[in-house]
Nucleic acid binder design. Structure first.
Length: 852
RNA sequence: GGGCGGUUAGCUCAGUUGGCUAGAGCGCGUCUUUGACGUAGACGAGGUCAUAGGUUCGAAUCCUAUACCGCCCACCA
């Protein structure tokens, strides 16, 4: 293969990925002497396409995996696919709807099979996209969330919770979406601020008492009045003290309900009297439990009023019922007023339907003991969080966590392995024969629960399910996922991990923020501002997307996507490509018959120093999850050091073996960040063997520090000369002269080459003329004609002024006795040194000015 | 109501335990057919680090308050 003039990612990426996959490089080594390093990929929706957030996730995880693989660890990156219960179900149900069918036309098993084939058709897409992003994951260990081993483990956990009495079947208020016909966990409900109305309604006392004939309550949902079973006042409320125990007439009905005393009633709010509708309000439900009140359901699962609401209201939607109730109240002169309010209302996160709290029998996990254990390990710092602040956020969440409803009324998911006695609704048994609708046990007939598990109940067990074949990889090394999943996923993995395995599921948690659109807005299909990662890949290359995504991004912070960063990254890839092209060219034209790497020129020690420093720093940054800084660092090495100085210098020196060696090191260090271009180069270079992905992380060079420092001085000298060349009036370049300066003398050619000076002769001191530059301890002259020198005077004066200011600053600092005594010695010493140097420079510049 | 985060160059953002002249990319200006790269090279301009106090020899960094902007959680009827 030859190097083309520009790097065309599309031409190489698919082949390179195939090469890696075929070679088995993605499989973890089984070397017992090496540490395992494990990352479980958060399983993308098997049915969906990847979004830009996946691009970020995979970039971060793959950087870690490739780095640790090169460090010689047994790196294992485990891919997954999520059946995404509710998400996929919504998509499928829409499809059914389009075909004029509903879920009720089929049995659960039929539906399950249909969705299975539907997902199976789509699944390849997602996996291809993961490949396009360069994920070096072990495909042979891909786990689908409905694989038998997942279901087995989930059933085992359910049974263990059952036996430990941490699972119970309870009739409680659940968050119900009447459109999707399923319940949700609390965390899945989206709360939105809404404008509403607060109506004041009078409930007449059966027997007037203590000067009252009626009590006025406030409500935002008058239609639920039909299900009221009490009204409550605060026990400390003196106004109503004597009324507690009295009965009021429930408007629009024939019922009479009691006045009770409960803390829930807020004396400050409205009249201080609150209606209690236990079957349709979480607080009221709790009040009813305390006071043993009846619960009357007046809204059905279809979102319409039911028979309990009375024949006037039955079958009306809640909206219609509200209007009718208000009209009736008005007619009966029981409406006492209305005020507009803003309040938070729960909505279905998928279809935005208002969530209806309804009484329903469901399976609940008693989370308290699980949460307590999780809180303990978190407080002990056993799991490190990036960003660190997420730890306390999670602890606070776990402290107030309520019991977890794990039943979902959708067919697409893991069936709950529980059966109920057809003759005794309290008699539930655990059995995994979920494909049978009815089973017989001990002569009794049991009917299966048709519900499925909440997806997070199975995902919450992901780390130990996916690593079960190689237990040495559990606990996993790091859980990298989106910050939005802290509660619903990370928290549950910790709780369930501790409960089932007695171990933490992962040692570190790294949470990335959301990738916003270029304007900083959240991406959404409805806004039409979604960026497709695969489009970016085809336009700029996978490496460019990765580097662009990690740039300027820190843990947990939402940040805009930036095309300019992607382009800058694409340019870097092209730069490395061209560096390699040149190096290959030099190697071809300057063959050597050995492979001994020798440092022969100043800049060679310097580049070795720079590579070593970058290597050391890079490792530190990756290990601390500072990806953006790591990306910057390697960019800086390649572009500003390797290409701009070393390669430019090597055009003169042509140290073939060193060029080979340093290029290899640079490619290795860049590889975790830009795997495709670096591997493509590795495969194209004439002398490299094997695959870059499987190379060892580079070892530091030995070099001469003095020589490296000398070259750093040359860089300053050359930069200084270039800068002056630009600011000297006119565009002419003039000879650079010096006298008695070994560094200058030894590097005349280099200086000439890099400054494009016409010549760099050594002269006698008395012949020195023109512009005098004093850089470090070097006296350099730019031999400009006298008239131009005159014009240049103001420039010199400016520099003198600036230098004077710098000196004053340093002097002030050193004059302060506190600084001298309290600041670290080295720092003070450095300040002194710097002051002396600057003073010398100033003197030189002043004498220079006098000469003009 | 509770909690978390942000405010640094024209734009998007870095800046780890306080320490030398506060950085990057893009953008901007001037110059450049150099043995690879114009997706390039050289040079340069641009910041009172939101505001006000405080701690300190020293603050973008720590503390307090204020303003504005985001996000998350929450049953206010």
């Amino acid at each position: 293969m030859k190097f083309s003039k520009t790097y065309e990612p599309n031409q190489y990426e698919p082949d390179v990925y195939a090469l890696w996959e075929k070679s088995g490089a993605f499989k973890p080594k089984q070397d017992k002497d090496k540490d395992p390093y494990t990352i479980v990929m958060p399983p993308p929706n098997a049915n969906g396409n990847l979004h830009i957030g996946h691009g970020l996730t995979i970039a971060l995880q793959d950087i870690l995996i490739r780095y640790h693989r090169m460090k010689g660890e047994n790196a294992w990156y485990i891919p997954g696919a999520d059946h995404a219960g509710f998400e996929t179900w919504v998509v499928y149900e829409r499809k059914l709807e389009a075909e004029g069918k509903t879920r009720f036309d089929f049995t659960r098993d039929d539906l399950y099979n249909q969705v299975w084939s539907f997902v199976y058709e789509q699944r390849g897409n997602m996996e291809l996209q993961i490949r396009a992003l360069g994920a070096s994951c072990d495909w042979s260990s891909l786990t689908f969330t409905l694989d038998p081993k997942v279901i087995d483990t989930v059933y085992g956990t359910f049974k263990k919770l059952w036996d430990d009495k941490l699972i119970y079947r309870g009739e409680k208020l659940v968050n119900f979406c009447t459109k999707h016909q399923t319940a949700f966990a609390d965390i899945e409900v989206t709360h939105k601020e809404e404008q509403g109305t607060l109506w004041q309604i009078a409930y007449p006392l059966v027997e007037p008492k203590a000067g009252y004939t009626e009590l006025v309550v406030s409500t935002t949902r008058p239609e639920t009045l039909l299900g009221d079973t009490a009204i409550a006042v605060n026990p400390k409320d003196k106004r109503y003290k004597d009324l507690v125990g009295s009965m009021v007439k429930l408007p629009l009905t024939e019922r009479e309900i009691p006045v009770i005393a409960d803390e829930h009633a807020d004396m400050e709010y409205g009249t201080g009297v609150v209606k209690i509708t236990p079957a349709h309000d979480q607080n009221d439900f709790e009040v009813a439990q305390r006071h043993d009140l009846p619960m009357i359901t007046v809204i059905g699962f279809d979102g319409k009023m039911n028979a309990n609401a009375g024949f006037n209201y039955e079958n009306l939607t809640t909206k219609q019922a509200r209007i009718k109730v208000l009209e009736a109240l008005k007619t009966q002169e029981l409406l006492r007023g209305e005020t507009p309010i803003t309040h938070a209302v729960g909505h279905c996160y998928k279809c935005d339907t208002r969530i209806e709290p309804l009484l329903k029998e469901q399976w609940f996990v008693d989370v308290k003991p699980l949460a307590e254990r999780a809180i303990k390990v978190l407080e002990e710092g056993k799991i490190k969080f990036h960003p660190a602040s997420k730890k306390n956020v999670l602890i606070n969440y776990l402290k107030q966590l309520k019991d977890w409803n794990i039943s979902r009324q959708i067919p697409w998911g893991i069936p709950i392995p529980a059966f109920v006695n057809v003759d005794d609704p309290k008699d539930w048994i655990y059995d995994t024969r979920v494909s049978e609708e009815e089973i017989k046990v001990n002569g009794k007939t049991y009917r299966r629960d048709n519900d499925t598990f909440d997806t997070w109940f199975s995902s919450g067990q992901w780390p130990y399910i996916t690593t079960s074949d190689r237990p040495e990889h559990y606990p996993t090394s790091v859980m990298e996922t989106g910050a939005d999943l802290l509660f619903q996923w990370v928290g549950r993995m910790i709780m369930l991990g501790l409960y089932v395995t007695d171990e933490i599921p992962f040692k570190d948690v790294y949470m990335h923020g959301m990738v916003l659109d270029e304007k900083g807005q959240k991406m959404s299909k409805s806004k039409g501002n979604v960026i497709n990662p695969i489009e970016i890949v085809s336009k700029y290359g996978s490496d460019a997307l990765r580097l662009g995504l990690i740039a300027s991004r820190s843990a947990g912070v939402n940040q805009a996507f930036s095309t300019s960063k992607v382009m800058a990254s694409r340019n870097l890839c092209n730069k490395v490509w061209n560096i390699s092209r040149l190096v290959q060219d030099i190697v071809d034209n300057n063959p050597v018959d050995n492979d001994k790497v020798e440092l022969k020129n100043l800049g060679e020690d310097w580049i070795c120093e720079q590579i070593n420093q970058t290597n050391k720093q890079l490792q530190k940054l990756i290990e601390h999850y500072r990806f953006a800084e790591a990306g910057d660092l390697i960019y800086d090495l390649i572009w500003n050091k390797y290409a701009d100085w070393f390669i430019e210098s090597e055009k003169l020196w042509k140290n073939t073996n060193l060029l080979k060696s340093t290029l290899e090191q640079v490619l290795k260090m860049l590889h975790p960040f830009a795997p495709f271009v670096t591997e493509t180069i590795w495969q194209t270079l004439s002398w490299t063997e094997g695959m870059l992905i499987a190379q060892e992380w580079p070892k530091p060079y030995e070099y001469d520090q003095q020589k490296a420092d000398d070259y750093a001085e040359l860089i300053d000298i050359i930069s200084n000369i270039r800068s002056h060349y630009q600011s000297i009036p006119g565009s002419g370049k003039y000879p650079i002269t010096f006298h008695d300066d070994p560094l200058m003398y030894d590097n005349q050619l280099l200086i000439q080459h890099l400054t494009k000076a016409p010549c760099v002769p050594k002269i006698n001191l008395e012949d020195a003329k023109g512009l005098h530059l004093a850089i470090h301890n070097h006296n350099v002259y730019i031999d400009i004609p006298k008239d131009i020198h005159e014009k240049y005077k103001s420039n010199l004066e400016e520099r003198i002024l600036k230098m004077g200011q710098e000196i004053t600053t340093l002097e002030k600092r050193l004059d302060s006795p506190n600084y001298v005594t309290k600041a670290p010695k080295e720092l003070v010493e450095e300040t002194r040194k710097s002051l002396t140097e600057k003073k010398e420079l100033l003197a030189k510049m002043k004498s220079e000015l006098e000469l003009i």
